[in-house]
Amino acid sequence: MHNVQLTTNLGNARTLTLAANDWQQSDTGIALIDFQDKADACAGDTKETHTSLTGQVPLASGESITGLTFSIGVPASENHQNQVAASTPLNLSSLFWSWQSGYKHMRLDVAPEGGITRPTDSGFSGTTWNLHLGSTDCTDDAQNGDEVSCGRNNRPDIILTDFDPTQNHVFFDYAALVAGANLSEDSAGPAGCMSGLTDTECSPVFAALGLNLTSGNTDTSLTQSVFSVR
């Protein structure tokens, strides 16, 4: 995520300056939230997770935090860099989205019990239902010195109110994210949603994130149901 701002009782939107660590970049304001400890059936050794943001925000006297806004994904200015020379956490190859010259903005791969079938293809047998959110319809090549732009940015803006950092957590609800999807079935292409305009699994997932699948922008007529304050 990036562009983390705290809204206050004085009506300000104050940028959270992230502490620099392996998961957070203070200069770009990019942070990776990582819930995957690989203690389950995921391939690879168990690993650390990073489930909270740390940083500083200046507040005036009498000013208090009342809300939180952020954008999911890697901002355009950092999304099309030389990935094999990038600094952490943008050096993680599992988040490369190289076919669109960028990064996965969000990745959630799950292994549904009973596997995944495809009604139109009896020979199909999948194990993982993937959600890979990333910018699509990208043009030009950063490695050539071009400025890359993408037709569909697919970076949801999340706005949360009634948030007091001393009392509340931000709750991420995977069940809400896939509530409209059937995890045991796939129509075609990669199992799950890989952000394609014609990927039928993407429609309910994008709607849950408040994203317009066609434009790739946050759609104010949709209400995101995935993030909440608890």
């Binding site: 990935q83 010259s101 090549d141 890359v148």
Partner: peptide, 12 residues
């Protein structure tokens, strides 16, 4: 259409 350098393509 956006893969225009071998350096970008080889990452794939």
């Amino acid at each position: 259409p956006s893969l225009r350098s071998l350096e970008q393509q080889i990452v794939i």
